[in-house]
């Protein structure tokens, strides 16, 4: 499926900056849409996702209450498994909360109750009382190119057991046999032939 053709997949990923951190900012009017597919689970920089209602980076105290957050990824144990991306966590925290005294952020499953919410790892889906996300319409792949077929000039059907005469004209094996029996010349160019003047052809398949 070619993603760029799909109208309904709106990626909120902020690509281009080296960090690759993703910020989901739902607009008030529209149902927020997070393209789960667009989020790369394996990207090491994607450790933090901040769900906030606006760009103003206001303390996210309301966020967690206003918008229920479902964590799909149970890999919540950031503190147990510190990664090189700890730096990224620090930055985010300071931006969001303005709270500098705690550089090391401990994340626990109960973090939803705190002033801000850090969602370790990637998959976040906001559930709202809206209809489910529209499923991108599957664009059917273009049909594979047709294999060329050639017809026999004698029976006018598709070639069966194609054979070439010594002069290079191609017929079904049974057709050229019968034809040479009837008259000893090529049906196409009238070159003189005898019963051994043709051989089987093994045509290759086409390559796309």
């Amino acid at each position: 499926m070619p993603r760029e053709n799909s109208n309904c997949s709106r990626s909120t990923a902020s690509s281009g900056n080296g960090r690759g951190r993703r910020r989901v900012q739902p607009v008030e009017v529209e149902p927020p849409f997070i393209d789960v597919d667009a989020i790369d689970v394996d990207d090491d920089d994607d450790d933090v996702i901040i769900v906030s209602p606006s760009r103003t980076r206001a303390p996210a105290s309301n966020v967690s209450r206003r918008r229920p957050v479902v964590l799909l990824d149970d890999d919540v144990v950031e503190e147990v498994n510190p990664r090189p991306s700890g730096v990224a966590i620090e930055e985010e925290v300071s931006i969001v909360s303005g709270n500098n005294h705690n550089k090391r952020v401990r994340i626990s499953p109960s973090a939803g109750g705190s002033a801000y919410q850090l969602v370790p790892r990637t998959k976040v889906i906001e559930i709202q009382p809206e209809p489910p996300q529209p499923v991108p319409v599957e664009v059917p792949p273009p049909p594979p190119p047709k294999e060329p077929t050639f017809s026999c000039p004698i029976c006018l059907n598709q070639l069966t057991e194609p054979c070439s005469t010594t002069c290079g004209h191609v017929f079904c094996q049974s057709c050229i046999k019968a034809s040479i029996q009837a008259q000893k010349k090529c049906p196409t160019c009238r070159k003189k032939l005898n019963k051994n003047s043709f051989h089987r052809l093994y045509l290759p398949n086409t390559v796309n």
Partner: peptide, 8 residues
Amino acid sequence: DSWSPAMT
């Protein structure tokens, strides 16, 4: 004489 089975 010059009939050929490739003719129609």
